[in-house]
Amino acid sequence: MTREAFERVVRQWGSRVHSHAVWMLRDREEARDVAQETLMRLWKHREEVHEAGAREWLLRTAHRLCIDRSRRLSVRREVPDGPAGIETADPAPDPARLADSSLLGERLESALLGLSPRNRAVVLLREVEGLGYEEIAESLSIPLGTLKAALHRSREKLREALAAEGVSP
């Protein structure tokens, strides 16, 4: 990957990496560190990574870093600085706002916290990032059947969480 390609990748996917880290870690400072470290690692390995596959490489690397960090941060459960923070959902929302997609997003982010880190990663990598099943299974080192079962359970749990919050289709 050339320097120009690296710059394009950073500008194009840097925020996706950061978003994944935010949703995984629930700590924006740590998420920024993960995003930076991931991008610096890409620079280090730029000779081995093609631009076309950079996004998957970045997400895999970011995910591994998130897992490492989440072990260290296991006692921290708050996002300290975010109006769009995952834990800031309005406890008594106006029903009219429930149809608002941004509120749905807030509720979903909040519901994601109820998933285990592995299941959260499964949902994010599949439903948000759109990675293939085989790729996710390889990244998370789990069998394909286990991955699909985890995904089904996680969808159901998120649906129940939204229904409990009053978000209905």
Binding site: S19, L108, V128
Partner: peptide, 18 residues
């Protein structure tokens, strides 16, 4: 319908820009 809402909502999650 709820499962589909979950999927649509996840796909529409706002990006957290670096």
């Amino acid at each position: 319908a709820g499962l589909e809402t979950v999927r649509e909502g996840l796909r529409a999650l706002p990006e957290r820009p670096l």
